[in-house]
Design a binder for these strands. Structure first.
Lengths: 138, 138
DNA sequence: CTCAAAATATAGCCCAAGCTATATTTATTA
DNA sequence: TAATAAATATAGCTTGGGCTATATTTTGAG
């Protein structure tokens, strides 16, 4: 009996854990985007694109550094570590797949892009694989 | 130009708002379930099913009361207001639809039930309608 | 009916994530 | 190059949602 069905408490705990990394995923993806677009990720731009005040972005970047996902020096731009860059790639790919899946089942594009922002963080690898298989069908 | 495409900041802000009501939705649905199953919703049972400590459940119930979703008297069970019961019904229906949609696109049942717990809170009415239409197809 | 057990409430702590206001540093321009 | 503007950091506050420890109330057994 090593795999009894997960209890409600297990499911809720899992959703809480996913939520706690969601913000880190968003920041890492955004930093990767900014570097790709403009060559650097400045705190002011991160704050602007995330829709938060600048000190909020500074604080979250500090958390990214604690978690080994980013580096930065005072008054300078933010960079991703290897782990951060790898996470950004995975998050970006997953985001695209979620949007495509939503559109494939009939969700209008704008709603798909809005909803994907919250949904993506809760899509497990198993679900992601299923989404990809579904999108490849004829 | 009343409907320019939502900015990144808009999308993130929207996801943050959805997240802030997610916990209330879960509690309200659970309280409805407990009342249906056992005739009453006790704080200890809520805490157990949510997988949190009892004072955490007490505090969240207080927030439900502030938001007009539940009522309770000291040392007594928790009840839903009309608004709370209506929300519980909507949440329960949406949860079922999300699980069914995930299974319909090929997600294994267990993964579908786990992932739905986090996904459901970010599914807009437009997406929900699309899911229902998709599930009704031949 | 009393008293012990169970349930609930309260106090007080932590951390994350938001904010405003202000200090500090870097960059630009006159 | 000195002064100003822009960017970043820091301080300190709020709220939400966790926790443990403990007080209080209700319930149920003898």
């Amino acid at each position: 009996m090593t795999d009894a069905p997960p209890s409600d408490a297990d499911r809720f705990a899992r959703a809480r854990r996913k939520q706690s990394v969601a913000l880190l995923e968003d920041y890492v993806e955004l930093i990767g985007d900014l570097i790709a677009e403009t060559g650097e990720a400045r705190v002011a731009d991160i704050a602007d694109r995330m829709g938060v005040a600048q000190p909020t972005a500074t604080k979250t970047v500090a958390r990214l550094k604690r978690e080994g996902l980013a580096t930065s020096r005072p008054y300078r731009g933010v960079f991703l570590t290897e782990a951060g860059a790898a996470l950004a790639d995975r998050v970006r790919a997953r985001h695209r797949t979620v949007v495509a899946l939503l559109i494939a089942v009939g969700v209008p594009q704008e709603a798909a892009e809005l909803d994907a922002e919250g949904i993506e963080h809760h899509v497990s690898d198993r679900s992601l694989a299923a989404f990809e298989a579904f999108l490849k069908r004829d």
